[in-house]
Amino acid sequence: MPLSLDEVRKVARLARLKLSDAELSRFEGQLGRVLEHMADLAALDTAAVPPTAHALGLSNVMRADEPVESGVQEALLANGPEREGPYLKVPKVIE
């Protein structure tokens, strides 16, 4: 199942990855080969098989909705590349 260069470019866009032309063409070949290997899955009949998202089988883990102090607000903000007071700065989104 070979992948076209345009498809690789589209996936990079979806993944928010800026890739060089060299990277794009390398991934075209490498991803194509990996996807070819995965074609073995298509041959299996799974029409009656439910999907497994999670091996543990726990669902809807609930706890009391009680606010607690995390105590790490400053440490979290300090990791921000650009910050203004208690906010993290990003380029303007809305004109």
């Binding site: 498809e7 996936v11 993944a15 990855l17 890739l19 990277e23 991934f27 991803l31 990996v34 996807l35």
Partner: peptide, 17 residues
């Protein structure tokens, strides 16, 4: 694009696809 290395990019691409 600048922060991730080749294998991480490869897997992000594979997963996104």
């Amino acid at each position: 694009g600048a922060g991730f290395g080749p294998e991480v990019k490869r897997r992000i691409m594979l997963g996104t696809y």
